[in-house]
């Protein structure tokens, strides 16, 4: 395997939790709900995934459990911000802290226990031996799932009646309401769906990327996913690109190190790239009139 393929293979792995969480947040935000609690949901998802796999020795069950706990946690945010019209920023941040705290306490007894049952790569015949692109076809179930899901989510959002309802609710909830769409239901479903993906994103870390449990193993990915949601311009397909870009920047740092570039400069690469991409995105936004969902972050109160 050549260097580029092996690096791409690793970058795809590193980007998968980012992609799953970003996809979740795209739908949540498209419906007008801002969920800043991703980091907390991912942390508990990671612990739950590990814990269920460790105790039941069943990967399907542990993925199901991680998604379920994600739904439960995001329902806290949904209840407070949709039903009780609370401040979404505060509620989301509270969820992030709650999740990190609970996972740390619950996981304290499980530190240092390696997980032998992990998500294994499934090699797709012929495709996996293609140079470079083959890296996409020698991955585990959740990687394939997240890639197929992005395409499906893009299609669902832009080409189906229900997808257009989500967009309508996020852009102009009162008009959507007037046309007979149940605004609260759509927002609830999108928030809970987002939570499920964020729970899975956490489980990917503890079941495939770093099998086992270590306190703080989500490493701020939940916050990056919030930035990636903006960078993707709320589009599930672009989500693949931005997540992969971020995954490879990290991996690239260590390839570039021997070439005499100061490490501290390399370490700042992800942030430099964020600023550059944001600037480019802003220009694109202005040109193509792409902007955040108009009703993002504002509770809908029927007049």
């Amino acid at each position: 395997m050549d260097i580029v393929t092996s690096l791409l293979l690793e970058s795809i792995k590193a980007s998968t939790p980012l992609l799953l969480a970003t996809l979740g947040e795209i739908y949540t935000e498209r419906s007008g709900i801002l969920n800043l609690g991703i980091e907390g949901i991912m942390a508990i998802g990671a612990f739950t995934g590990f814990f269920v796999a460790y105790t039941t020795r069943s990967l399907p069950l542990s993925l199901l459990a991680a998604a379920t706990i994600g739904i439960l946690l995001s329902s806290l945010h949904a209840i407070s911000s949709i039903t009780f019209k609370a401040n979404q920023t505060v509620s989301g941040l509270a969820l992030a802290m709650l999740g990190l705290g609970i996972s740390s306490v619950a996981g304290s007894k499980y530190v240092g226990l390696p997980l032998t049952l992990t998500l294994q790569p499934i090699r797709i015949p012929y495709l996996a031996s293609v140079p470079i692109a083959g890296a996409f076809f020698n991955q585990d179930f959740l990687v394939y799932f997240s890639l197929i899901l992005s395409i499906f989510m893009w299609f669902f959002l832009n080409r189906t009646k229900y997808g257009l309802q989500i967009i309508a609710v996020g852009e102009n909830p009162s008009a959507a309401d007037a046309s007979g769409i149940n605004v609260e239901l759509v927002r609830y479903l999108c928030t809970l769906f987002g939570g499920a993906l964020e729970g899975l994103a956490g489980a990917y870390i503890s079941l495939a990327y770093l099998p086992g449990w270590i306190d703080g193993m989500t490493q701020g990915r939940g916050w990056i996913a919030i930035a990636l949601t903006v960078l993707s311009l709320w589009d599930p397909l672009k989500g693949i690109l931005v997540a992969l870009a971020f995954g490879s920047i990290d991996a690239l740092q260590y390839v570039l190190q021997p070439y005499g570039i100061p490490v501290s400069l390399l370490n700042s690469l992800p942030y430099v790239v964020t600023i550059v991409v944001m600037a480019v995105a802003t220009i694109l936004l202005a040109k193509r009139r792409v902007r955040p969902p108009s009703a993002l972050g504002t509770p809908y109160i029927r007049e």
Partner: peptide
């Protein structure tokens, strides 16, 4: 001191060389 992602990626970079 603690960066499992970085450690993994640095190891990958070393192995690919």
């Amino acid at each position: 001191w603690y960066n499992p992602d970085g450690a993994r990626q640095a190891a990958q970079a070393l192995v690919s060389e």
